[in-house]
Amino acid sequence: MKTVPSQYDQIARETFLPQIGKIVEIADMTAKDRYFRIELEKPLGHGPGQFVMVSVLGLGEAPISISNGPSEDNILEMVIRRIGRLTQAIHELKVGDQLGIRGPYGSGFNLDDFYSHDVLFVAGGLGLVPLRSLITPIIKERGRFGNITLISGCRNPAEELYRDQLETWTTDAGMDVIRLVDGTENMPWEFGTGLVTDPIPKLEMDPKKTMAALCGPPVMYKFVIKALNVRGMNFDQIFVDLERRMKCGVGKCGHCQINKIYCCQDGPVFRFSDLSGIPEALQ
């Protein structure tokens, strides 16, 4: 009577089994954010804005944004904030230790949406990490884009990520980089203070030929989108990268559902005009 559907062993391996990645480099970016460079068994083949499910076997698994641009090699880069149980454990790891990696997952950004346009990036805090996976391929083909502007904001100078890159993006990649902190908290800081929305009214931009990519905490989106809209940008010119709890990455566990859509599969990157009937998106 027993029939063995052997195909399920293969499907289960492809769905829930992580491949093992080896940590080849770790660097502190801030007091709570750490950069990890992982060497995988096989290339990830990811696009900008996608994410992976990262696990420490025996402790758990969580979705983490990919921070390097698309590449052919076996390298995965991530910046992980020490924030919960799993990320605490990841921060304990050393070069040579192993991580479980599943993915890549999600829809990500499509470069075709950005070619021949001016590009505006707005990053709040850790939001710079996934945006970097889009900034990297864009500056690789710098000539195919117009003006590129990045507004990067964080709480205080000590929390700023990718400081070296922010420099080289300005000097070598011809990007306008506006660096902001909410407050200097008595730390040395030669750039501006304020919210990421502050520079938007004065930005030199042609709203009709600009595409914007936003990533940051939930509260940031509403205000940035409103400011861009006031400048004359339409909702179909704005992409947002949303964060949700995820347990499977393949549209089954239910945690990332936002009204009728699944953040893990339909997103996490959305064209904002596609979220018009999705009232939970910016809550």
Binding site: L59, G84, R85, L86, Q88, A89, E92
Partner: peptide
Amino acid sequence: KSVLHGTTPF
């Protein structure tokens, strides 16, 4: 186990 792994128990 959590304390041994340096993580917060949940």
